[in-house]
């Protein structure tokens, strides 16, 4: 009945995934190319990886990025979690519309605008209160925290709105105070969302070029900024090697995370099945 349709959908999926993955695959393949030219395969070699690890500026930039990522993701969690909680559990309050606007807008705001506006804020603040003095890691962390917090808020909010409020009400009914409910009931329930939010923030921070470029100062060059300045000139095999490392690291992380999630879900499903004796 739907043979033609499934053939169409199948080819759309195949084309789409080829489109998504072939370029990445090519980067990985050519990172092992002996020669410097993209189009000519000169034999297998890992020399570009060796080059990469000898590039001190690149390594420094990578450390900067990792440190910024860790700090921004953690701060974003601290600010985004209450924001998500407020959006899904606090009902109406004065200024809610503006609040939800400030959470939704960073998700789509063009980076150049966010970057410019934050830089101007930092300059103004320095003039008025003397802090932050100059620009560097601190300003990058603040900037990244701001847009990452919006992502965390959305992740937490969608997890919470998929959850039954009666669990929290039951805790309240049994005599738990609001703060206690949050730490004993709500927090454990949204833990997967918090982990996802943190990971998302970390990678977004690691990935950001435009905003960092605006608010960075001397000595706070991040990895994307370094990469950008070298790829502006064209393809570089060293960057291929770096790209491969990043792609592999992130893929492994994501695959492990999703296998863990899937396994715990399957285990839970099996347990429910055993407990109730109902076959799936």
């Amino acid at each position: 009945m739907n043979g033609k349709r499934s053939i169409f959908l199948m080819s759309a999926l195949c084309f789409g995934f080829a489109f998504l993955y072939v370029p990445i695959m090519l980067v990985i393949i050519y990172s092992f190319n002996e020669g410097k030219l993209v189009t000519v395969w000169a034999g297998f070699s890992t020399k570009w990886y060796v080059e990469l690890f000898r590039d001190d500026a690149m390594i420094d930039a990578a450390w900067n990025s990792l440190r910024i990522g860790l700090m921004s993701a953690t701060l974003a969690l601290a600010i985004g979690t209450p924001a998500g909680l407020v959006m899904s559990r606090f009902g109406r309050f004065r200024g809610r519309t503006m609040f939800s606007g400030m959470i939704a807008a960073p998700l789509v705001m063009p980076d150049v605008i966010t970057g410019l506006s934050l830089l101007l804020l930092f300059v103004t603040m320095e003039q008025l209160v003397g802090w932050p003095a100059g620009r560097g890691m601190t300003t990058i962390v603040i900037a990244h925290t701001t847009f990452c917090a919006a992502y965390v808020a959305v992740v937490v909010q969608s997890r919470l709105s998929g959850m039954d409020t009666s669990i929290e009400e039951a805790a309240m009914d049994l005599g738990a105070k609001p703060t206690k409910i949050f730490f004993l009931i709500t927090l454990p329930m949204i833990l997967p969302a918090l982990m996802a939010g943190w990971l998302l923030s970390f990678t977004l921070s690691l990935d950001d070029l435009v905003i960092s470029s605006f608010v960075a100062g001397p000595g706070s060059t991040t990895l994307p900024m370094k990469v950008f300045s070298s790829v502006r000139l064209g393809v570089s095999p060293e960057i291929n090697a770096l790209a491969t490392l990043i792609i592999i690291a992130i893929s492994v992380l994501i695959i492990i995370a999703s296998i863990l999630v899937m396994r715990s879900e399957r285990q839970r499903a099996r347990q429910v099945q055993e407990d109730t004796g109902i076959p799936g």
């Binding site: 090519l26 980067v27 050519y30 998302l200 990469v227 393809v235 770096l242 992130i250």
Partner: peptide
């Protein structure tokens, strides 16, 4: 997961990948 995976890998690198293809 296959749709989400590229979203997690670096944006800059994904743009960069096309330089080598389209040059």
């Amino acid at each position: 997961m296959l749709v989400i995976l590229p979203f997690w890998t670096s944006f800059l690198i994904r743009v960069y990948a096309w330089i080598g293809i389209l040059d």
